[in-house]
């Protein structure tokens, strides 16, 4: 039986573990923390499975590989909402909506009345929008918890250790899924700071993620149910410190307020900040040196691309198939 050690129990590590178990591997999952928590980038994720929207700024592989995500997550966690996603812009920024439409596929244009029909709480605030009907979302912490539970039930062993992947690799096949923590071993990996909030606003009901375009401060709101929303997210070149800036809070909250003034009454439950691990083209990479495979660079697409990444790592190990995101030059 193939024995594999996976370092890092964030979204990448858990997906790789799940995929390897499904192929019959013997999996040991190692993380420096006993449980999932705010130390992991995926803890703060939006959980949008929105490959077509991401196509606005991401390159083609993100859209194509991202299309694998919703079915995968639904099969493994049964935590996927298939409600589409809605993109709107304030009237003064309507040229951003035109551009977004030109840069993406998989949507239909909707009128103000249709928007009000889809999301009554947006009312007549927006005259036009884009509805990406096939897109999905999930609740990241629930999905991660279910995935982790299923992995342990299926026999994966968990070890709490601040592991050095190179040491583990001397003993056997090891996959480094540590995200930004692997930076010391991946000199071209950089951090892109993201800041987000969790709000409680029972006055507003939304059924699907809403993206509001803005030339400087585009935001998204993802409903978590029970009046809870995730509001994100800044994108700043530079790894994150410990704290969120006042500017980020002001900008995010005022954008949410513009979406619906009822958010002025929202309670702020959590404020999060972390570094998205990214390579220069913002695309993921798989690198192999001997017994060590490094899978990293999911950028802002953790939940969207981790299933495809896990599939590719599994195919590399079991079928000797070179992944399309294999980075041979760096080996």
């Amino acid at each position: 039986m193939t024995e594999v050690t996976i370092i890092g129990a964030g979204v990448a590590g858990l997906c790789v573990a799940r995929a390897l178990l499904d192929r019959g591997a013997d999996v040991v999952l190692v993380d420096r923390h006993a449980d999932a928590g705010p130390h992991a980038c995926s803890w703060w994720a939006g959980g949008m499975l929105a490959p077509f929207c991401e196509g606005e700024s991401a390159e083609e592989p993100v859209v194509r590989l991202g299309c694998e995500a919703a079915d995968w997550w639904n099969a493994k966690t049964n935590a996927v909402y298939r409600c589409g996603s809605l993109v709107v812009s304030p009237a003064r920024d309507k040229s951003d909506l035109v551009r977004f439409a030109r840069r993406t596929t998989g949507y239909r244009e909707v009128t103000g009345a249709e928007i009000a029909n889809l999301e009554p709480d947006l009312g007549d605030r927006f005259a036009k929008g884009l509805f990406f009907e096939t897109e999905c979302h999930l609740t990241p912490r629930l999905a991660l918890a279910r995935l982790r539970a299923s992995i342990l039930v299926d026999g994966a062993q968990f070890v709490q250790d601040d592991a050095d992947p190179d040491e583990y690799a001397q003993r056997g096949l090891t996959i480094d899924c540590r995200g930004f923590q692997a930076r010391a071993n991946l000199p071209d990996l950089r951090g892109v700071k993201g800041e987000m909030l969790v709000l409680s606003c029972p006055d507003v009901t939304l059924s699907r993620p809403i993206r509001m375009l803005h030339p400087r401060v585009p935001i998204y709101l993802v409903p978590r149910g029970d009046g809870i929303f995730m509001l994100g997210a800044t994108m700043i070149e530079g790894h994150a410190g410990k704290h969120v800036t006042a500017r980020a809070l002001l900008e995010l909250l005022s954008a949410a307020y513009a979406l619906n003034p009822a958010f002025g009454e929202a309670e702020v439950l959590e404020i999060g900040v972390d570094s998205r691990p990214a390579f220069p083209d913002n695309l993921p990479r798989i690198r192999r040196v001997g017994n060590l495979i490094r899978a990293n660079g999911l950028f802002r697409h953790g939940f969207l691309l981790a299933p495809a990444m896990a599939r590719m790592v599994t195919e590399l190990i079991f079928d000797n198939k070179t992944p399309e995101v294999m980075d041979e030059t760096a080996a």
């Binding site: 991401a58 390159e59 990214a278 220069p280 083209d281 913002n282």
Partner: peptide, 8 residues
């Protein structure tokens, strides 16, 4: 820019 690679 969409990414530093595209910027370069």
């Amino acid at each position: 820019y969409p990414s530093p690679a595209i910027l370069a």
